[in-house]
Write a protein that binds this DNA or RNA. Structure first.
Length: 117
DNA sequence: ACATTGACCTACA
DNA sequence: TTGTAGGCCAATG
């Protein structure tokens, strides 16, 4: 049999492919792997030192809320530098910036769309 | 070898 | 509308 990858390793494969300037949610990643009920474990996977080279700052809650302390400030700064825009309460505007891997041809000018609050 | 523990999301009362 | 239970991975001590 071909190598059986563990759940965490599949998570890492997906996270590694999130493009700069886009975000994915924990639940979305779980779904992409085919385990829709395991959003929680996606979060757990990010704790492993083994995965700290991955762009975890591009992973947010479903409503665009950034992860809690102690990561919030760094994540906010990193996403802002990638051109992502936020609502007044510092949530990512998911309608514009969520990554949709099944349709890679999202217009590049997406970040110039008018802000919707 | 076992217990602990850690960046989530959905359904349902 | 708010609160709570269930899902069941893998590194660490």
């Amino acid at each position: 049999m071909a190598q059986q990858k563990g759940f965490y390793d599949q998570v890492y494969d997906v996270v590694a492919r999130i493009p700069s300037g886009r975000v994915a949610t924990f639940g979305q990643i779980a779904q992409l792997i085919g385990r829709p009920k395991m959003a929680r474990f996606v979060g757990y996977a990010s704790n492993n030192q083994k995965s700290w080279h991955l762009p975890w700052h591009r992973v947010v809650f479903k409503d665009g809320t950034l992860v809690g302390e102690p990561f919030f400030d760094q994540q906010y700064k990193a996403l802002k530098e990638e051109g992502i825009k936020f609502t007044k309460d510092k949530r990512v505007i998911m309608e514009q910036f969520q990554w949709h891997p099944e349709s890679e041809n999202i217009p590049d000018d997406i970040r110039d769309w008018p802000l919707v609050f």
